[in-house]
């Protein structure tokens, strides 16, 4: 079910501000693509445009094409809600629904879509929690509120919630930036497992993380203040970190700026 992304000539604007300039990128299925780059370079913006979450921000608009297995997610007959059902997202800070129990959090997407069969929901909850490596830690307290878990557990809960609707792609927006090193490791292990089934795109500030989990790395950069963000280069992770094609990439990776 994992699908491939083809991003063609993508430009993103906030009102009059040109935030991201002409991105061309292919994301193969069952593969982890990492977006790296300094703050404000547009990598999160690009990520959010992949499931139309940027439309939440007033004034944001997109030009160009984002093809999911050849279908443009911005075609006029495509509903953003359907796009998001197909392309799940995990956010920077864990955001479980505070009014719901752990189990309800996991199956929230299904229940809100109208699935009522309790047995089915329970199965999905278990499968998703197992998939997120959380089942053993929470199986005895599924009815407790999700807010009672630790930060790392909450983030895995959010991943379980995202995979419960069986998306084709998972987008992760700095999923470990609010977590401690041990929780980070747990999430990274999880990503490695998830890529067997999902296409994953992850934004990260942590270059070691990009090197550890991703197969392909895209480096974004700003050419100057007030200039739009650019995709500088994209290549196999190994190549980017050992022998990047651009000077800017090398500078960034070796810590000379950013």
């Amino acid at each position: 079910m994992a699908k491939r992304f083809d991003i063609k000539d993508l430009n993103i604007y906030y009102g009059k501000f040109h935030a991201v300039n002409s991105v061309n990128l292919a994301v193969p299925p069952r593969n982890v693509t990492a977006f790296i780059g300094p703050s404000g370079c547009g990598k999160s913006t690009v990520l959010r445009s992949l499931n139309r979450m940027h439309e939440v921000i007033p004034g944001a608009r997109v030009e160009g094409k984002v093809l999911l297995d050849g279908e443009d997610i911005y075609a006029s007959n495509v509903d953003p809600v359907e796009v998001r059902r197909t392309i799940g997202m995990v956010f920077q800070r864990p955001n479980p629904f505070p009014t719901m129990s752990i189990r309800d959090n996991v199956v929230a997407g299904l229940r809100l879509a109208g699935v009522k069969n309790k047995k089915h929901l329970d199965e999905v909850a278990e499968r998703s929690l197992r998939g997120a490596n959380l089942w053993n830690e929470v199986k005895d307290r599924l009815d407790r509120p999700g807010g009672g878990l630790s930060g790392g557990q909450q983030q895995r809960l959010c991943i379980a919630r995202a995979i419960a609707v069986q998306p084709d792609v998972l987008l992760m927006d700095e999923p470990c930036s609010a977590l401690d090193p041990i929780s980070t490791l747990a999430i990274e292990d999880l990503i490695t497992e998830l890529k067997k089934e999902y296409t994953i795109v992850i934004v990260t500030h942590n270059m070691q993380q990009a090197a550890r989990v991703s197969d392909q790395t895209a480096f974004f950069n700003l050419l100057g203040v007030g200039q739009p963000g650019q995709l500088i280069e994209v290549d196999d992770t190994e190549k980017i970190f050992s022998n990047p094609g651009q000077k800017a990439t090398e500078d960034y990776i070796s810590g000379r700026f950013g």
Binding site: V81, R84, F91, G109, L112
Partner: peptide, 20 residues
């Protein structure tokens, strides 16, 4: 963040408001 989490699950806006 809660609204976004709900949208990202493919929940329509009115359901996000009513249920979340």
């Amino acid at each position: 963040e809660l609204r976004e989490a709900s949208y990202a699950l493919g929940v329509p806006k009115w359901k996000t408001i009513v249920k979340i």
